[in-house]
Amino acid sequence: MNGIITVSLLLLALVGATLFLLPYFSSRRFYFTITVAPGFPASEAGRSIMRGYHTQVAVILAASALVVAAIPYAALVASEVLLGLGGGAAFLYARSKVSRYSVAPETVREAGLSADEEHLPRWILWALPPFLFPAAAGLWLRAHWSEIPVRFPYHWNAHGEPNRWAIRSERAVYGPLLLCAAIILLILLISLAAFYGSRRSEQRLATIKLAVASMYCLSIVFVGVAVMPVVHVPIWLFVAPGVLFTIGAMAWQYKFLNAPSRGAEATPDACWHLGQIYYNPQDPALFVQNRLGLGYTANFGNRLSWVLLGVVLVAAGGMVFFLPRSG
C-alpha cells in the first residue's frame, strides 16, 4: 500500500507543479490564453489573478493529498481526477477574469512572396532512427525466440511487481514494437500535417523538433519493454527517460515561448473555446499555434480537420490490436 501512496504523491507533485507553472507556458501576448496588452501580466490586476490561481491550485493539491491518505486503494485515480478537474476549473476561472482585460488581436498580416515551397530541413532525417530501434529489437527477439519464456509478464504494478502475463506468441512478442512504430509514425505524420497546414513561423520547426525528440523517447521505452522477456531491465530505466524527457521538454518550451523576440500568431479570442479549442471557418489555416504550450491545434472550422481527427481516432483505435492479451 505504501508503494501506491508514494507513487500517487509523486504523481500529484508532478501534476501539481505542472498546473502551478501552466500559465507561464504561453507567449507574452497571451495571459491564461487571452490576448492582453504587453504590460498586463506585470500589472496589479494581472498579478492578483495569478495569485488567486496559485492559491486555488495549492488548495486543490492539498485536498488531493488528503484523498491519497484517506483512500489509498483508490488514491491514484481519485487524487489525479480531483487535481486535474480542480486545476482545470481554476485555470478557466482565471481565464474568465482575464477576458475582461482582453485587447483586440493584431490586424496587420505579413506574408513572404517567395514561392520556394517550404521544404523540410535535412535534419528531419533524424526522425528515421526511432523506426530502426524497434525493427532491430524485433530481429534480435526473433534470433532469441527460444529464450523467451512461454509465459512472461507485460504489466507491472506500482511496486514494480508483474500483475499481467502473456503467452509467447508473435502478437505478444512483437506487439509492443509494432505499437511503438505505429505511435511514432502517427506523431510524425501529425507533425508534418501541422507543418504544411499552418502559417510560416519559427514554432513550426520547433514543434517538429519536439515531436522527433518524443519519438526517440517512446522508441527507447518500447524497445526496453519488448526485450524484457529475455533481458531483465529495471523498471526505473523506463520511468527515468520519460521523466527526464518531460522535464527537459518543459524547460525548452518555456525558454522558447518566453523569448522576448518571439512573435505570436494573431487569432481572434472569440474563436478559442476553453482556451484550447479553435473554431474559425474564416481562417484557411488547418492548424494554428496553441495558446498554451508549444505546438499546434486543429482549426475545427476547417472541414479537413474533422477528416484528420477521424483518421487519427481510427488509427489510434487500430493500435489496440497490437496490445498483448493476458494469458
Binding site: R109, A111, G112, L113, S114, A115, E117, G197, S198, R199, R200, A266, Q282, D283, P284, A285
Partner: peptide
C-alpha cells in the same frame, strides 16, 4: 519569379482563398 500558391498566401494572410 514564382509567387506562392493561392492557398498558401491566403493561409499566411488569414484571408479567404
Amino acid at each position: 519569379c514564382r509567387l506562392p500558391s493561392v492557398r498558401r498566401l491566403a493561409m499566411e494572410l488569414g484571408v479567404h482563398f
